[in-house]
């Protein structure tokens, strides 16, 4: 769901060890990279390495049918053109219903396909959902090995709150990191004198830096990135001057990493 805000369709690359997704948004401003290791699943089996091209907008709509306590099983057969999602029916709300969303065609660029909704109080205690598969162009990323000048680690809830609040005030934000201070500010929101008075490091913020960094970013994207905050208690902001920001959420068996090109020029 976090990814679908940024990219409309992408390949889930599946192998024996993990599921990975990497996709750039249409404007080439942001990129999202996700990995979930096999141990992160209750059960996991991949007999053959294969890409699952998925329309994330459709997938998100299908996922909204699940409740948090539902266990979701994803299945794709060899040569199949659908991804099958099965929700167990622990939830009383869904248990009497059978939902079948079915559509065909491998072209993920087509508009949201028609679907059929079948409901019956007599059908089994499972929800079956199918979404069509397509192939997307993979992205090579030799770049993520980049060593960054700064790394700021902070509670993800704090980051979410900051970017959400600042997005009410403006369209972009400046992130400055010096030895003892990380300042995330709407440009010209305060006088520099006020800034000096308010400089402090909130609890749970760790700054690692080799060099002072000052970059400006679109808040719209940062707000979208921050929607992954529920996946991890901490978020890392990795920055060097004049290179894309890396916003990294690591969880036990994987990660979601978002890259954002900075604003450039004067």
């Amino acid at each position: 769901k976090s990814c679908s805000i940024l990219v409309t369709d992408a390949n889930f690359e599946c192998n024996e060890e993990n599921i990975m997704l990497q996709a750039m948004d249409n404007s080439h401003i942001a990129l999202v990279s996700v990995e979930i290791g096999a141990p992160g699943f209750t059960s996991y089996r991949c007999d053959r390495t294969m890409p699952l091209g998925v329309d994330l907008t459709s997938l998100t709509k299908v996922l909204r049918c699940a409740k948090d306590e539902n266990i979701c099983t994803l299945k794709a057969a060899d040569e199949a053109d659908v991804l099958n999602l099965v929700y167990d029916a622990k939830s009383a709300f869904f248990s009497p219903f059978f939902f079948a969303f079915m559509w065909h065609g491998r072209d993920a660029s087509s508009p949201f396909p028609p679907f059929f909704l079948l409901c019956s109080a007599l059908l089994p205690l499972f929800i079956h959902l199918n979404i069509s598969l397509s192939s997307q162009t993979p992205i090579t990323s030799s770049w993520p090995e980049t060593k960054y000048d700064t790394r700021v680690t902070l509670p993800s809830a704090e980051f979410t709150r900051i970017v959400r609040d600042l997005s009410q005030l403006g369209e972009h934000v400046r992130i400055e990191v010096s030895k003892e201070v990380v300042r995330i500010s709407k440009l010209k929101a305060k006088s520099s004198a006020e800034d000096e008075d308010n400089d402090s490091i909130p609890t749970g913020v760790v700054i690692e830096m080799n060099q002072h960094v000052s970059l400006t970013f679109s808040l719209k994207y940062l707000v979208n990135f921050s929607k992954s905050g529920s996946l991890s208690g901490e978020v890392q902001l990795l920055m060097s001057n004049d290179v894309p920001l890396l916003v990294a959420y690591d969880f036990t068996q994987g990660y979601i990493r978002c890259y954002l090109a900075p604003k450039i020029g004067d």
Partner: peptide, 14 residues
């Protein structure tokens, strides 16, 4: 004023 940069050059489509 600043302009929005792009990721081209950092990531390439295969």
């Amino acid at each position: 004023s600043k302009q929005q940069g792009r990721l081209d050059g950092f990531f390439t489509m295969k």
